Simulated scan of single mutants.
Amino acid sequence: MKLNIIIIEDELTAAENLRLMLKEIDTDINILAILPGVEKSLEWLSSNKHPDLAFFDIQLEDGLSFEIFKEAEVDFPVIFTTAFDEYAIEAFKVNSIDYLLKPIKEEDLIFSLGKYEKLNKRNVEIEVVDKILGSIRSGQKATTFLVHLRDKLIPVSAKDIAYFYIQEGLVRGCSHQNQLYPIDHTLDELEESLETNQFFRANRQYIVNRKAIREMEFFFNGRLSLKIAPPTPETILISKARVPVFKSWMRG
């Protein structure tokens, strides 16, 4: 059975490479159109039968491909091809929109096509598009993380995490209910993406949520020891140099 696909991509080389990879993977794939921008895509969608699947680049010659969702009825699943930031990508995942990072690898493309076969087709809600657009344009901090639990991706709100920590090279988040989640980010990345008025980088091993801090104790050599709920695997110490910064953050 033919799989009808459109590619929305303003880089001709990238579009052609994707077309060739798709045809090599499955000769029954039919590329209906390669469209370079938002306006051309809207024109095509208004006058042609919609595809079974589409590949949307994010940044097009005349704007962001998200605008297409606001002007046309997108009643087919979309796989984004992007070199965009991690926060936007996570938002796509939460809403069952797959993505491929450029340059696209054949094995990743095969995986995405397999995922398409398993997923029910669903529309992209306009509220989701507005949220993603607003986040990109305003530089809004990350509010949701996707965590792998067995064979599922589970969205977890950042505010529900009491602390993030690294142990034996693995980053985890511990919720206020003492549930542990594997986190696919480094602590440095988390420090950049989290709300600074809510989370504090205590040391190289821990980032703590303000709401999880129960008390502080003076420790040897001018350091502070934090007591967190739920309890941490090891004592969280703030260095003497960081104590004034931490106190200022707590007062803020």
Results as ranks from 00 to 15, higher is better:
31 I>F: 04
39 E>P: 02
69 F>S: 04
171 V>H: 10
68 I>K: 05
97 I>K: 07
78 V>N: 01
105 K>Q: 08
122 R>G: 10
75 D>G: 00
104 I>N: 06
127 E>S: 13
217 E>W: 10
121 K>E: 12
34 I>M: 09
72 A>T: 01
48 N>E: 09
211 K>T: 13
14 A>D: 05
149 L>V: 12
212 A>L: 10
62 D>F: 01
65 S>W: 05
235 T>G: 01
28 D>N: 13
249 W>Y: 03
35 L>E: 03
228 I>K: 03
201 R>G: 03
154 I>D: 04
199 F>T: 06
100 L>V: 13
152 K>I: 05
81 T>F: 01
44 W>E: 02
197 N>E: 14
169 G>K: 11
35 L>V: 12
121 K>R: 11
248 S>P: 00
65 S>D: 05
9 E>V: 02
98 D>M: 12
20 L>S: 08
157 S>Y: 08
144 T>V: 14
183 I>A: 05
81 T>V: 12
214 R>I: 15
175 S>Q: 01
98 D>F: 10
174 C>L: 02
109 L>S: 09
31 I>D: 07
237 L>N: 01
71 E>I: 01
53 L>D: 03
137 R>K: 10
222 G>A: 13
148 H>D: 12
99 Y>K: 07
162 A>D: 06
177 Q>K: 15
36 P>M: 00
177 Q>F: 01
201 R>P: 01
32 L>W: 00
8 I>T: 15
210 R>V: 13
139 G>T: 12
22 L>D: 00
220 F>V: 04
